[in-house]
Design a protein around this nucleic acid. Structure first.
Lengths: 231, 231
DNA sequence: TCAAAAGTGTTCTTTGTACACCCATGT
DNA sequence: ACATGGGTGTACAAAGAACACTTTTGA
């Protein structure tokens, strides 16, 4: 590239979009913003996004974006890929780098999102979105499906203490199929990824259910050696 | 973003880098360019790359880049992810979108690359590269490992007709471990992904080996339904 | 004649899958 | 008393892993 050509190249903007998966104990949901008043897609919901200033780091922007929408730290975040169709954005050429993250969807967060006029939409009922955000979500779902099969990232979506039924529901939503209760428990227990807490939950049934927590140490080992959690 | 802020954002360039995997019948190799005479990494080899003009499509640039370095069409190409550390490139902020592709490494291509002062370096002996290209290659290797396990993309790396031993060597290099001959053959034959051609190869051994080809129709079916080729 | 790669089966272990009933308790 | 979700075991099928010898033929 010659110096005088720089202006042909250096006139692109970076944006970051976030597919935030939340699990409310019943189903997976994705966070959508509704604040588009004008622009090319007025009124259309869209993924939480931010433009990145040319001199700023991407990762710090992603972190900020995640915190802004979750109020939580230590969230699982991973890049999906760059989406960079030419006419995505009427402001000019924008490279949109898409990330996904997983979060425990508790009442506090639901309340917070509501105040911000953001909505946790059911995984299976995503409406038409602005830009190419539907495509990004489809891509994110596929990634989640694969990840959930091979690594125990599902645990990031659950509260600290959870029942095996909740865990199973999470897997069923993510993988979009039903599973056998006994086989599921067998596999999870064999994996030794969860340990009993001694506590019980009786909010969702007559008989109370054992609460488990996730064995972090075991998880670290299994994550490293390319773990197989094949459902 | 306000109109007057546009200049804070729209001053980034896009580049595309390519991790080109080639298999020569013995081992996997990656193509590196050596033409860096000046700049921040003088003399350091680097991945084949190109800057993308702000108004151009990414995909067409990737296609062109692949063709430029392989002289072949219908190559398997997939995006890895965007690499966008702030000070990657002294010209200014550059978002480098990395792709990988797989190609049959025949004599013709070896000759062509040689003329272009490019080198097919052994998969396990990658030198220090310019920019963050080593990081990109590590990422690409991991992706190849996963892909090769789940989808028959290995076939894109082989000549039209190949022996089972060649196929096994390819898997062994990609996955970096040895495999049992009998179990390998059993699995491959059971998969019904390859068919005998009736031809034989006697270049690499005393006893001649059967040449197989890859059953495209079967492949299409298996690729769609999220195939498991677990080695 | 021997070195080098081709080709071939069996056994055992592990993992997956299908399947049905009793339990505790809040209403 | 009954509806709701919690919890448990067994038998069969499929897939993976370990393992050793014979064949062909160019040098």
């Amino acid at each position: 590239m010659l110096p005088e050509e720089k202006e042909i190249y250096f006139k692109v903007a970076i944006s970051v979009s976030l597919v935030l998966f939340g699990f409310d104990g019943e189903m997976l949901r994705i966070l959508l913003s509704n604040d588009t008043k004008k622009g090319p897609f007025p009124g259309a919901p869209h993924l939480p996004s931010v433009y990145v200033k040319a001199h700023e780091g991407i990762d710090s922007n992603v972190e900020k974006l995640v915190f802004l929408h979750t109020q939580k730290d230590h969230i699982f975040v991973e890049q999906l890929k760059a989406f960079a169709k030419v006419f995505n954005n009427p402001l000019g050429r924008v490279v949109n780098i898409a990330y996904y993250a997983t979060v425990k969807l508790d009442d506090e967060l639901l309340q917070y999102s509501k105040e911000r006029d953001e909505e946790w939409v059911a995984y299976s009922k995503i409406p038409d979105l602005a830009f190419d955000h539907n495509e990004i979500i489809d891509y994110a779902k596929e990634r989640l499906k694969r990840r959930v099969k091979r690594r125990p990232i599902g645990f990031y979506l659950l509260p600290k203490h959870f029942t095996i039924s909740q865990l199973q529901k999470l897997y069923e939503t993510a993988l979009n199929r039903e599973m056998d209760k006994r086989n599921f428990r067998k596999k999870i227990v064999n994996s030794q990824l969860i340990v009993e807490t001694g506590l019980t939950d009786n909010s969702s049934s007559r008989k109370s259910a054992k609460l488990y927590k996730f064995d972090e140490e075991k998880y670290q080992k299994l994550s490293l050696k390319g773990y197989d959690f094949l459902f």
